[in-house]
């Protein structure tokens, strides 16, 4: 009797008929939007909205009248582009950008060079204690930036640093690391120490994914380990190099922790040493959120332009090489 209950498809008036094809299609079309909803809502609430508000603030300013005491003495008014022209004409912001440029010229090549070198060394067959070495190089990345800067800051202070003690005992010259040119080296050192491990892991992971046949073919062709490294490994990890370079540029433009942490230890780091420190100082030291917002927008745009320019250049090069 059970068979009698079953009805073949297409029988008119079937109570369990499938929904019409159009409904299915509509549901299928709306599904992606439904999945996107949570991310979109969060993006709008916590990303787009604050950015929009910052842009709005950057076009406003506070106008004080008279002595500025008592209620109603302060009004928020439209400023037009004034905050932007002020920021671009502010020598401190430009100087800060130049200082960061100098700092980046040391940090990025040294850090990525070391990361690549370590990754290649770890990837070579002859290395011993590879897991331990890998961890040891990576470990500084796990230390929070502020803590790292404090640790190094204390090591840079002649009166408390064990290094200076040793130099003193050996009768060697004791350079002042928290002044002038050496200050850039001192700051870069903290960034390199903390960042090399992360970049090394990125490059190393990409080295590991190169298929063994490639090496085998190279060896059969008589390539030495150095040739393999230079002509096979490095070109094949180029995308990760581009990626790490990209991250490093952004991190450099946003440098804040290291100089801010070293600031109380020396007279050489001003409160506006890097562009982000200037933004922070204007917003929270001088209480001018409007100027700070304009500067933040400028820095964000500069970062965006630089990043895209770099990515485009890198892509074009890769395409050219692929075409060759």
């Amino acid at each position: 009797m059970t068979t009698a209950r079953r009805r073949p498809y297409g029988v008119k008036g079937a109570p369990y008929a499938h929904p019409s094809p159009t409904t299915t299609l509509r549901r299928a079309r709306s599904a992606p939007y439904f999945f996107l909803l949570p991310a979109t809502v969060l993006f709008l609430l916590f990303f787009a909205l604050p950015i929009g508000y910052a842009v709005y603030l950057s076009f406003r300013k506070v106008r004080v009248s008279g002595l500025g005491l008592g209620s109603g003495a302060r009004k928020e008014v439209w400023a037009g582009l004034q905050n932007y022209t002020d920021a671009l004409g502010d020598s401190e912001l430009v100087d800060g950008a130049l200082r960061v440029l100098g700092y980046g010229c040391i940090v990025v090549p040294v850090m990525l060079g070391l990361a690549l070198l370590f990754a290649l060394m770890l990837d070579s067959e002859r290395v011993r204690l590879a897991p331990f070495t890998r961890l040891a190089i990576f470990l500084p990345y796990a230390i929070p930036g502020v803590v790292a800067a404090l640790l190094w800051g204390f090591l840079y202070l002649p009166d408390v640093s064990p290094f200076y003690f040793v130099l003193d005992r050996l009768g060697l010259p004791q350079p002042d690391l928290l002044d002038g040119g050496p200050l850039y080296l001192a700051l870069s050192n903290i960034a390199v120490w903390g960042g090399t491990g992360f970049n090394m892991i990125v490059i190393y992971t990409s080295l590991q994914s190169i298929p063994a046949e490639v090496y085998e073919a190279a060896k059969l062709d008589g390539a030495t380990p150095t040739q393999i490294a230079l002509r096979i490994k490095i070109p094949m990890v180029a995308p990760s190099l581009v990626l790490t370079f990209f991250f490093s540029i952004i991190a450099t433009l946003q440098v804040f922790n290291e100089p801010t942490t070293l600031r109380p230890l020396t007279n050489s780091v001003s409160s506006t040493w890097s562009p982000l420190m200037k933004v922070y100082q204007d917003a929270f030291g001088n209480g001018d959120i409007h100027a700070a917002a304009a500067q933040a927008v400028i820095i964000a745009l500069a970062t965006l332009v630089l990043s895209f320019a770099f990515l485009r250049a890198a892509n074009r090069r890769q395409k050219q090489e692929a075409a060759r």
């Binding site: 500025g68 007279n267 409160s271 100082q281 001088n286």
Partner: peptide, 20 residues
């Protein structure tokens, strides 16, 4: 006055530099 914060920050930067 109403912008002691600005004066204080400038002090730190300007006198820090001069002392150095």
């Amino acid at each position: 006055g109403p912008n002691v914060n600005v004066a204080y920050t400038t002090f730190k930067d300007a006198f820090g530099k001069a002392a150095k």
